[in-house]
Amino acid sequence: MKKDRRYLLLSLLAVSTVLAAWWLATDILKLVPSTTFPSPVKVLRTLVIKFWDPNPDGATLPQHVIASLQVSLTGYLMGVFIGVPLGICMAWFTRFDWFARPLFDMLRPIPGIAWIPLMIILFGIGVMSKAMVIFLSSFTACVVNSYSGIKQTKAVHLWVARTFGAGNLEMLFKIAIPTSLPLVLTGMRVALGSSWSALVAAELLASTQGLGFMIMQCRGLYRPDVIIAGMITIGSVGAFLTWLLSLLERRVVKGGRFS
């Protein structure tokens, strides 16, 4: 417990050092003009004001956050619900692996952003096209990690189940899937990171709201304080979602990380 507190202090020290250096460089030493790179105090003020003030980009910060969450979670959950079972099936059923692998290997290197024009043509400029870009970013991490997780199943565990009389599907559900869970959750965490970072790119697709949209709008309006406030919000919401996922991981993965 004492050790944990010491580590927490170390982390806080890192954040405060960066903030202090930033404040020193902008407000005290005035190394950079505040219109180019605002001080942390100004950014904090903007962050607070943006909670109720829709200016200069047309929506308040909570509205932007909700819009972004709607897009990114739609894409992310699609990635999880399609990617995880697909990875599991590819790893467990050899014939299915042979069937799906060439297609997956071909799609995997295409970056999410390259899909944007096609998604606009297919789904228009609504939530779906942006969600699809995020889906394609998170899907790969889910497939790859679930696949690796299943492949880490120890032969001896399968043999134990088999000698007790378990069939193929029972071995999948009672041995292989529990073995793969830590890596599946790692995949979900990586996917969450990539889906959240694909947000800005996705919101370049004709948006009227969203954190990515807010940042892009304020670039045109030359408001670096709002840009940085938006970046801080993206980072904070991402960290919060990762924390939520780690809570889920603690509930689901029992007995330590074993794969």
Partner: peptide, 15 residues
Amino acid sequence: IAYIFQENSTMPWLT
């Protein structure tokens, strides 16, 4: 039939 193997075969995710 039950089989006890040379290596540890407890399932780490089960109590």
